[in-house]
């Protein structure tokens, strides 16, 4: 009885005592991928059978030998590099972009706080008047002190009179922050571009940020599609969930989807219900997108909006 065993090094014909009788060695990885051809040749030549599973262990022992080390190393490295190359897909791009948006938000907050402190030495009234970070930064960058005083309607200021070179540094910072806000907007456009093609349903129902964040927490669209709706409902609330399981505290109602407008708009006693229904539909959307289904998100969105008005 002769057996055939193929691995990355080559195809081998083993006899009844599992000694190598004949072999075709693969020169490169492609030959291993098209192994059927060489397997067929050897099978006909020796009338060999495919190795049964219970003898697999013994066959593997044959290759635990120093002479094969180099071959194993070379081919496996090549194959692994190929599969790493193939593993990159839209999921990775979305996760990277949304992570950078999160980081930009943090950075912008810190920098704008600093700018407010700094510029308030020069014109403290402006920071009191304007709450929105983005607007504040834009005003500082574009307008002079006199124009700004006119805008907020004060004639006197308790800010110090600083020379122009002293103020220029603050304006430079403001311009830098504006660039960051611009970059954030570009990132959102980029996400929309990818998600429109890759997961249109999820994009329509969840929006750019929440959709991308779900993708980040669920690791990939494939994984997200496999998750039950109840898990999607609690993505991002892991800490509260595990606290609930461990100590028996109250269970969380919503994770990241609390930022969604439908949950936000719902009445206080209906928030849990809204989160559950939204998660339900999001789960269906993820499945539709992963298995390339039709576009149904608009109906779902309408349905939810009517339910929670």
């Amino acid at each position: 009885m002769k057996y055939l065993f193929t691995n990355i090094i080559g195809s081998f014909v083993l006899d009844g005592k599992l000694k190598i009788v004949d072999s075709t060695l693969f020169k490169n990885v492609e030959e291993h991928k098209n192994k059927e051809k060489s397997e067929k040749q050897l099978k006909q030549k020796h009338k060999a059978e495919q190795l049964p599973n219970e003898k697999l262990h013994q066959a593997l022992l044959l290759f635990k030998d120093k002479q094969y080390h180099q071959e194993f190393y070379k081919k496996n490295l090549q194959l692994t590099k190929q599969s790493i190359k193939e593993s990159v897909n839209e999921d990775n791009l979305i996760v990277q972009a949304i992570s950078n948006i999160n980081e930009l938000d943090k950075i912008n907050n810190i920098l704008t706080k600093r700018l407010r402190e700094w510029y308030s030495l020069y014109l403290p009234e402006l920071s009191e008047e304007i709450q929105s970070h983005e607007k504040y930064v834009e005003l500082v960058a574009t307008k002079t002190k006199e124009e700004l005083m006119k805008e907020i309607g004060t004639k006197e200021t308790m800010g110090a009179d600083l020379d122009k070179p002293y103020v220029d540094e603050m304006i430079l910072l403001a311009k830098q922050i504006i660039n960051n806000y611009q970059l954030r907007k570009e990132h959102e456009k980029y996400l929309e571009l990818i998600m429109k093609r890759y997961c249109p349903n999820l994009l329509e129902l969840a929006g750019i940020t929440i959709g991308a964040k779900l993708m980040e927490l669920g690791k990939s669209l494939k994984h997200l599609a496999m998750l039950p709706a109840s898990t999607i409902q609690l993505l991002g609330a892991e800490k509260a969930l595990f606290r609930h399981i461990k100590t028996g505290s109250r269970s969380p109602k919503h994770g990241i989807i609390i930022n969604h407008s439908i949950v936000q708009k719902a009445k206080r006693n209906e928030k849990g219900k809204a989160a559950r229904m939204l998660a339900d539909k999001l789960s269906i959307c993820a499945k539709l997108d992963y298995f390339k289904g039709e576009f149904k998100a608009k109906e779902y969105k309408k349905e939810l909006e009517e339910n929670f008005r």
Binding site: N7, K64, K75, T80, I84, S87
Partner: peptide, 17 residues
């Protein structure tokens, strides 16, 4: 080797005993 240890058949051709 990029493979899942839960499925030995994925990498059985790439390793020895």
């Amino acid at each position: 080797i990029l493979a899942n240890a839960n499925h030995p058949e994925e990498y059985i051709e790439r390793v020895s005993a």
